[in-house]
Amino acid sequence: MTEPAPDPIRFTDATMAYHRAPVLEGVDGRVRAGEAVALIGPNGGGKTTLIKAVLGLVPVIAGTVTVAGRRPAEARARVGYVPQAASLDPEFPVTARQVVMMGRLRLIGRWRRPGRQDRAAVDEALDRVGLADRAGARFGTLSGGQRQRVLLARALSPDPPILLLDEPFNGVDAVSQDALITALTRAKSTGTAVLVSTHDLAPVPCLCEQTCLVNRRQIAFGPTELALTPDLLRACYGGHVVDLDAGRLVVTRG
C-alpha cells in the first residue's frame, strides 16, 4: 500500500492577507496533476494575491494552502512562475535565451557554468513555445506576446510539476495566445498542474478543467462548465452587468 501522491495545490478554506488585512477569503479547492484551473475575477479581487500565496510570497492567515503537500515557501523548487511580461523592463540587457536560462539557475548552482544539458533544456523550452528561432534576440525587442512566451519557456525549462501564470493572455496577439495554449496543453499532458489567472474567458473552456471565481472571497471553485455561468459571473463582478457573448466577457457599468 502506498500513500496517494498529495495534490499539487490544495486550498482549505484559506484566507490571504497583506499587513494583516484580509485580501481574499474562503478559498477552498484543489488543482490536480495534469489539470488546469482558471482564476477569474475583477481587478483588485485577489487573483494576484492567490498566486503569490501559492508562491509563499503572501501570508495565509487562516485555513491552509499546501503545494505538493508542503507549505508554499518550502515548495518553490516545484513551481514554475510566469509573471506578466509588461511588468518587466524592456530595456534590460538580456537575450531570450538568457531569460530562459534564469529558470535553470537554481539547478545549475553558483559554482558551475551552464552545461550542455542546461543549454539543451533551454532550447527545448523555447521550442515548446515556438520561439526557437528568436533565442538570440534581446528580450525587449520581442513583441508583448513573444515576451510572455519567453517567460513561459523560462518556467518550463526546469520541468516543474506545477505552473502558475499571472494574466498571460493580457494584450497578447492571436498567434502568441495559440502558442501559449499549445505549450500549456502539452505540459498538462505530461502531468503538470496549471493555475492561470485571466481576464479573457475565450481560452478557458478548452484549456481549463476547473474555474475559480474570486472577488475578495471565493465565489465559485468547480468544473468550468458549472462555474462559468452568467449568474456566477455577475455575482463575481459585483453590480456590473456581465454578458456572455460567444465566450467573451463583457463587463458594462450598470
Binding site: L55, L57, R76, A77, V79, Y81, P83, S87, M102, G103, L105, R106, L151, R154, L164
Partner: peptide, 8 residues
C-alpha cells in the same frame, strides 16, 4: 518577484 518565486 520571479527570482523569489524560483526559490532564490
Amino acid at each position: 518577484d520571479g527570482m523569489r518565486a524560483a526559490g532564490h
